[in-house]
């Protein structure tokens, strides 16, 4: 058995796979204050879910808090783990877009799954999960209801602001103008897509992954609409990094 633990800024994920790379168990928790504690908890939860003992399981840790996982056999960057995970599902040249809680990464790989280049935005909340969280809070909409609301939208409107803070102000004036909540929420997701497209041209086969897209499937629709072609969706997008780490544990 092989385990991958992805300690992200917002959520910590664990996935355990068997020799044939099939998922045996997985678990996810909010990262919170203590990275050591959450890594330990999420691992134990996955183990007990599969009725496993930690003995003999190889563990690879990834994510921004990977160095805090004391029990890991080795560590890997989240960029290589995301590639590994995505390439397993789609073995070809890819443009991988990982929307995280506090950053967004754009990774390009060649046919062999090797990284050609990558871009990361972690200086600015626009285009990341933090943007959606802040806007949901300002609109007083529970984060988990955003996707459903956006899917029910019937009218296309546009948000012109770039900055999260200015977007919040713009939304208040849209509400005053009488725009519907669901249409605004859809436009908010549209803004995330715009920020991603501005990072780098999205060429070839595009994979969308990460916790934010796992909970907000509308992002797939909107990106497909913007690109005019299909966007690849890995199974369990939130666990791509943890899955990739587990594959590294196997090597």
């Amino acid at each position: 058995m092989f385990a991958g633990i992805d300690v992200g800024a917002s959520a910590t994920k664990c996935m355990i796979v068997d020799e044939s790379k099939n998922e045996v168990a997985s678990a996810v928790r909010r990262t919170g204050m203590s990275l050591r504690k959450v890594a330990d908890e999420v691992y134990k939860e996955a183990l007990s879910g599969a009725g496993l003992e930690p003995d003999g399981i190889k563990v690879v840790a990834t994510g921004f808090g990977r160095k805090n996982v004391d029990f890991a056999d080795s560590i890997r960057t989240e960029i290589s783990c995301h590639c590994k995970g995505c390439y397993h599902h789609f073995p070809r040249a890819l443009t991988i877009v990982d929307i995280g809680g506090q950053d967004t990464k754009l990774i390009r790989t060649n046919v062999e799954g090797k990284i050609i280049d990558f871009k990361m935005n972690r200086k600015c909340a626009a285009g990341t999960g933090a943007f959606l969280e802040e806007i949901a809070r300002r609109m007083d909409v529970p984060l988990e209801e955003m996707n459903g609301l956006a899917l029910s939208s019937e009218r296309e409107i546009e948000i012109g602001s770039y900055c999260t803070v200015f977007t919040a102000t713009e939304i208040l004036s849209k509400i005053r103008e009488g725009e519907k909540q669901k249409d605004i929420v859809r436009a908010v997701f549209g803004s995330v897509i715009k920020r991603i497209q501005e990072m780098n041209p999205l060429i070839g086969d595009v994979v969308l992954t990460g916790g934010v897209v796992a909970h907000n499937e509308i992002l797939f629709d909107l990106l497909e609409e913007a690109l005019g072609r299909e966007v690849l969706k890995p199974p369990k997008p939130q666990f791509t990094g943890a899955f990739g780490a587990a594959l590294y544990a196997m090597m």
């Binding site: 506090q102 200086k123 909340a125 933090a130 943007f131 802040e134 900055c163 999260t164 803070v165």
Partner: peptide, 10 residues
């Protein structure tokens, strides 16, 4: 240290 207002708030 964060420039972004959202991250600076956090």
């Amino acid at each position: 240290s964060s420039t972004c207002v959202v991250f600076a708030k956090a």
